[in-house]
Design a protein around this nucleic acid. Sequence first.
RNA 1: GUCUGGGUAGCCAAGUGGUAAGGCGUUGGUCUGCAAAACCAAAAAUCGUGGGUUCGAUUCCCACCCUGGACUCCA
Length: 486
Amino acid sequence: MTLSIYNTLTRHKEPFATIEPDKVTMYCCGVTVYDDCHLGHARSYIAWDVLRRYLQWRGYTVRYVQNFTDIDDKILNRARAEGATMQAVSDRYIDAYFRDIQRLNILDASEYPRVTEHIPDIHALIQGLVEKGYAYATDGDVYYNVEQFGDYGKLSGRQLEQMQAGAGGRVDPNDPDRKKRNSSDFALWKSAKPDEPAWESPWGMGRPGWHIECSAMIWARLGETIDIHGGGGDLVFPHHENEIAQSEALTGQPLARYWMHNGMVTVGGEKMSKSLGNFTTIQALLDGQWPDYPQPVAPMAIRLFVLQAHYRKPLDFTPMAIAAAEKGWHTLNSALTAELPSHELSGNTLEAESVQRFQAAMDDDLNTAAALAVLFELAKSIQREVNRRTHQSTRQLSDPQLITTWQTLSQLASVLGLEAQPESTASSPDSSLDLDVAWVETLLHQRQAARQEKHYAESDRIRDELQAAGITVVDLPGGKAEWHRS
RNA sequence: GUCUGGGUAGCCAAGUGGUAAGGCGUUGGUCUGCAAAACCAAAAAUCGUGGGUUCGAUUCCCACCCUGGACUCCA
């Protein structure tokens, strides 16, 4: 079987072939660190995390580079508003990024370069473009001359003359201050304004434009051509188009063999974004601070929510969808944490048919929705068997079969980054719910006594009292009961 | 205007030239003093509309309707 990947550049699924056998170089655009990450970011990085995990599972060695944009107008604005330095702001949100992303079980990239670490590479790249006639300097700014690059528009399918400058409503094409020759030209280097952080350069003090950083980091760290370049679908134009223009004009080589883009998270059909203000941060979601769903959401439920849709399609964010994902995760998690016979019985064998179906789904441009169907079938099979054994004392699967099924589920789930969490800690120790365990145990004893004497009104009253305190009581066979936080 | 996606059961969502995975929900059953959980079973989709190609289309083509994203902030 061959892995095929949808390439934005060709608008087709293509068989995946690497530059070097068994090795993959991939670069995904990271965040501009001026605020907390929201669910849209989570979706993107979960998608690339799954791609990376799957490639590794398929036997590739993956070198995955993801940048931090730590020079930017928004970071500057934030720093000014706080009276802090740009670096203080970006450091803070880089920390926040790691905090959120690790909770979602997203593996660390191989490297996390920052723009500020690559100023010399940026200079070299711009210098090269100037020398080759692709860029021009005016008054301390350097612009890319889009008309010089014949392939401009090949990624996004645009032609310069068909674009309407300013259609996005954020730019005034008739801005008298502009020094560009063509409205499509974009800044490689911006001259410093007073009170802004600035770096020395051959064109005077200033700072890099947005697009150049990715070209420079890829060039410096991964070489002229990489296997996979990923990012949000909203970056296709202009960001990735401009990266191509910069890198390919300089090196004469393709920047990336496969361009992959994830779909947007939407809210009520509209893109979740900072500028629309309709975003929910990862932290708020995990900590139960989302007003539409005021309880902590299991991190794995968020992964499940994301992976139940294909990565290229829009994904609508609703309380119902999150609730459904939580339930779905509960099903998988129960199977993953099921009590099994001793594991030593069966080496490391897996169910070949399930693995094959999983792989076929993932090979088809990472069809995680179809892959999850395999996981759910495995999980249900485990639950069914465990239920038979505990409640009916019968069995349909041998111990090795059951363990093999579990091992298959466990391994395939981990390829998707779905890892078991004990139920009790799923909702995390919340200090606002400081429980008096002794008090609970006392009430449970009273209830048990009442039940034994068939004083059901009293036992139900105690159960209601505990429920009101946020404790759910579950009766077990044999007159025993267990409890957990609601 | 230009470029690019999407419209599949109550909701979410895969997929296919021969009437359609999975999840959530719903209904009935088992279990329980009653619940909950779990398990078993079931119901539920003329696959946006209208044409065309075909023995046959939800799947290919055309038109139309609705809708998302991009057009220099964006994951």
